[in-house]
Design a protein around this nucleic acid. Structure first.
Length: 422
RNA sequence: GGAGAGGUGGCAGAGUGGUCGAAUGUACCUGACUCGAAAUCAGGCGUAGGCGCAAGUCUACCGAGGGUUCGAAUCCCUCCCUCUCCGCCA
């Protein structure tokens, strides 16, 4: 959520900056709501002040045993007008709140201007896409031949866009998340967390998924939502809190499943486990001092990249352009891993600085020289586990259809070096 | 799931219709005393918002949301959460 003060003071520049990300700010509507708010609020508060003053006098007279009937008749005429004003004010404030909740974040000045994915700017590349002296197979074929990847049974159990892993591939999947958690806790200084996978609407509003993106979420009959990312429960740890400045930055890591209904994505990535209703992710979250958040973003990005380096997976980092960024982000880097079968880089991580956008929704603050100031929130996948599994199968495949296990994972795999068909 | 007890400021804890944004204690900040610290004394010390150049002033907030009343922390309704006991369960 944006600070309403900047809409009041400089709406033109807000409009311009939002236009760069394809959002048309309804300036006229805002100004009309504000004008009405101002007059109704002033009137309401005047009436409240008057009522309070008279009521207080009534109390004082009654305490002395005096008659107060003149005051009672005086204040009774206020009632209807006050009630009407209070109701009107409530409606205006709800409308303003809804208006604000549906405005995306302002892009940081360093974000490249662009219309689509094609305008994202490559920041760096690491590793060389492997050369295969045989036809590189995709992960579906590799996995099915290894007997560890079974979409048909997953479809029977649940439906489309679910997967079933077995044997060494299931173990590899577990090894990946263990490895990632261990790396981030022991070398990068994150605190491991275990969090709820079902959350309330307030938390989703805090991180920006609600009210605008309800259709992307799965929900339960009892009013809970399944988390679309660990960002939601982990970031909401600080919702409504006032932190001490020396506790910053808070660094949390969580391994969770993520559930996305991906309405509207039908037809995209229908094959394989690239786009699923359920996938695992190891997520990094930092709660940072506003002055430090951009150096924290670089650091967090580096932590995600480190996973790929240790797994020996070629990748590149791109800075998302204005139109490609998510609703809540001020700046986002995507990490894309090389997939030999598709002969292209595909997203495997997304690292963002939300500045105070989520913090304002959550009222997450810290004490700064006696005053409360909003924190900045950041997060990044490090990494999406399912897609990492895909990348390993494809990049480390061997001519005979087996797959080499990256060295750092072998301790988690009971020393297995090669996954062969069973 | 059943029965009961609760939710008040950073913490503890008063307050059951009126001058209560809220006693008191404690923590914290400032000042005095001290070479310094402790102790003591004095003052300050919640959040969000409106109006105002400012000084300031007004409004709202006692788990959340409704209601009764001239007036609600206090009464009524709904919901959430915590604790105790029982049941069930991993």
């Amino acid at each position: 959520m944006l600070d309403i003060q900047i809409l009041r003071s400089d709406i033109q520049s807000v409009e311009r900056r939002l236009e760069s990300r394809g959002f048309a700010l309804d300036v006229a509507r805002f100004e009309a709501l504000e004008a009405r708010r101002k007059s109704v609020q002033t009137r309401t508060q005047d009436l409240q002040a008057k009522r309070n003053a008279v009521s207080k006098s009534i109390g004082m007279r009654k305490a002395k045993g005096e008659d107060a009937s003149d005051l009672l008749s005086e204040v009774s005429t206020l009632g209807d007008e006050l009630k009407a004003n209070e109701e009107a004010l409530g409606k205006i404030q709800d409308a303003l709140q809804e208006f604000l909740l549906n405005i995306p974040n302002l892009p940081h000045e360093s974000v490249p201007y662009g219309q689509s994915e094609a305008d994202n700017v490559e920041v760096r590349k690491w590793g060389k896409p492997g050369q295969f002296d045989f036809e590189a197979k995709d992960h579906v074929e590799i996995g099915e031949r290894l007997g560890g990847l079974d979409f048909e049974t997953a479809a029977k159990i649940s439906g489309a866009r679910f997967s079933l892993l077995k044997g060494n591939l299931a173990r590899l999947h577990r090894a990946l998340s263990q490895f990632m958690l261990d790396l981030h806790t022991s070398e990068h200084g994150y605190i491991e967390t275990y969090v709820p996978y079902l959350v309330n609407a307030e938390s989703l509003k805090g991180t920006g998924q609600l009210p605008k993106f309800e259709e992307d979420l799965f929900s339960t009959s009892s009013g809970y939502y399944l988390i679309p990312t660990a960002e939601v429960p982990v970031t909401n740890i600080v919702r409504g809190e006032i932190l001490s400045p020396d506790s910053l930055p808070l660094k949390y890591v969580a391994h969770t499943p993520c559930f996305r209904s991906e309405a509207g994505s039908y037809g995209r990535d229908v094959r394989g486990m690239i786009r699923q209703h359920q996938f695992d992710k190891v997520e990094l979250v930092q709660i940072a001092h506003p002055e430090k958040s951009y150096s924290v973003l670089e650091e967090l990005l580096g932590h995600a990249e480190e996973v790929l380096k240790r797994l020996d997976l070629p990748y590149r980092v791109v800075s998302l352009c204005t139109r490609d960024m998510g609703f809540s982000a001020a700046k986002t880097y995507d990490i894309e891993v090389w997939l030999p079968a598709q002969k292209t880089y595909r997203e495997i991580s997304s690292c963002s600085n939300f500045e105070s956008f989520q913090a304002r929704r959550m009222q997450a603050r810290f004490k700064s020289e006696g005053k409360n100031e909003l924190v900045h929130t950041l997060n990044g996948s490090a990494l999406a586990v399912g897609r990492t599994l895909v990348a390993i199968l494809e990049n480390h495949q061997l001519a005979d259809g087996s797959v080499a296990v990256p060295e750092v994972l072998r301790p988690y795999m009971g020393g297995i070096e090669i996954i062969k068909a069973s």
